[in-house]
Design a protein around this nucleic acid. Structure first.
Length: 422
RNA sequence: GUGGCCAUAGCUCAGUUGGUUAGAGUGCCAGGUUGUGGCCCUGGAGGUCGAGGGUUCAAAUCCCCCUGGCCACCCCA
């Protein structure tokens, strides 16, 4: 009693009971949808060389500079818990001789990510992402396909009204040129800017466009899209045409610049009205043709997205009628010690017929067992006692309408299997 | 990393200007009822009042600090 209990670390959470099912349900749906589009599972380490993110994600980004879980192991290696999935997936795929020349290579992934940030609802230090990457091909139709997979995932999750915000950052040269333009525009205005913006002007000028307080300056600022070279402009145009042809709605938003260094050309975010704040996104992504080279790997163009599972869950929890996974749908109860064997046989047969079945052979009052079922969402009970063993039958009770009947085992199984399909 | 609100039973919450044994509802357990749960009755368990320190004769209550949650920033998923 004197030792204090150990709590879960700040910003982490336990997924118990229905929450665990809800998390897995989102991940399962994304796996199913992306598999339908031909995306192969890629599983990469949860920790990587810290340098992978310093070079890939970028040392100038908050994600790497302020939020990364970096540490050295007992062999004095500089490692980091992954703050995002893309660099690891690119490292694995672009380096592997068996797959790096398969073009395009469609990859899907999911799992925990880590960022040292101040926790809030829908924002944790350990959180989960699902995502895809397509490597090896630079083609607007691939960008469209990636957005299509995301769109189908939202649909399969039952999440409607997703707002796709689309932008193009152009080539690296376009972006550097635009950066200079922005600095030239903002520098004379320095004294009129808010404190944050003065800082951004020095550190990350693209972020000036995110400012809410200096909206009038943002409105008059030069627009990146206007300065794009002809071929990148055509590329962006083709992406938009492709989305229209696919019937995927989107909004072009020149302020979508993304927080990671490696993006070029197409970038996008997924917004939803029930998440607070304009900066709170369901997910995002874009094209990163230069990333592999920055990591010292052969040139490998790519495009992908990542979605925050906890944010998908926030939205889904506000929807009605979403089935949050399966609990056992039947409890088999042995009413006395002599009936345990009969109950076991019955449970085994039900599982063989794919009916989720829990077995209760413990002592205790029947009414407690019924209430246990109620709390667990179990809707059927099978009772085996002296009479049932004698007749080779079971008693099947419907816990919702409180009716029950004596049946042969085969009839009982057929009954339950049929009721599950409704 | 900055600012604001908050923390009492498993859950939802009372708790008077600081006052002696911290309550209610609900849930849980046992019995009334030997193999049948929604109502009723009886009894029971369950609290370091988030942690630590301070003020005081006396702290759930006032002060400090820490931890954690939520909200708004920063930023992102």
């Amino acid at each position: 009693m004197s030792t204090p209990a150990i709590a879960a670390p700040r910003g982490t959470r336990d997924y118990l009971d229905g929450d665990g099912a809800a998390l897995l349900s989102c991940i399962d749906i994304h796996r199913r949808v992306s598999s339908l589009f031909g995306y192969r599972h890629v599983i990469t380490p949860i920790f990587e060389a810290a340098e992978l993110f310093e070079r890939g994600t970028g040392t100038g980004t908050d994600v790497v500079e302020k939020e990364m879980y970096s540490f050295t192991d007992r062999g004095n290696r500089a490692l980091a818990l992954r703050p995002e999935g893309t660099p690891g997936v690119i490292r694995a795929l672009a380096a592997d001789p068996a797959v790096r020349d398969i073009r395009p290579y469609r990859a899907q992934y999911d799992g925990p990510m880590f960022r040292y940030d101040r926790p809030q609802k829908g924002r944790y230090r350990e959180f989960h992402q699902v995502g895809v990457e397509v490597l090896g091909v630079r083609d607007p139709n691939i960008d469209v396909e990636v957005l299509h997979v995301a769109w189908e995932t939202f649909s399969a999750l039952g999440i409607g009204n997703v707002d796709i915000r689309l932008n193009s950052l152009g080539s690296r040269e376009d972006r550097l040129h635009y950066r200079d333009e922005l600095v030239a525009y903002y520098t004379p205005l320095r004294d009129e800017l808010c404190e944050d913006c003065r800082r951004r002007l020095d550190t990350n000028p693209l972020r000036l466009l995110d400012c809410k307080t200096d909206a009038r300056h943002v409105a008059a600022a030069p627009i990146l899209l206007d300065g794009l070279a002809a071929d990148t402009r055509t590329y962006f145009h083709d992406v938009q045409e492709g989305l229209r042809a696919e019937g995927i709605p989107f909004t072009v938003d020149p302020r979508i610049v993304r927080g990671l260094d490696y993006y070029c050309d197409t970038t996008f975010e997924f917004w939803h009205s029930s998440l607070n704040g304009a900066q709170n996104a369901l997910g995002g992504g874009g094209r990163y043709d230069g990333l592999a080279e920055v990591l010292g790997l052969p040139h490998t163009p790519g495009v992908g997205y990542a979605l925050g599972v906890e944010r998908l869950m926030v939205i889904r929890s506000e929807l009605e009628g979403i089935q949050q996974g399966l609990s056992p749908s039947v409890l088999v109860i042995a009413l006395d010690a002599e009936s345990v064997k009969h109950a076991r046989t019955c449970a085994t047969a039900l599982r063989a017929a794919s009916v989720p079945t829990a077995l209760d052979v413990a002592k205790g009052k029947l009414d407690r067992k019924f209430r246990w079922c109620e709390r667990m969402g179990v809707s059927w009970c099978i009772m085996c006692g002296e009479d049932e063993v004698r007749d080779g039958q079971v008693t099947l009770r419907n816990l919702q309408d409180r009716t029950q009947e004596r049946l042969d085992m085969d009839a009982c199984i057929a009954r339950l299997a049929a009721s599950r399909e409704e």
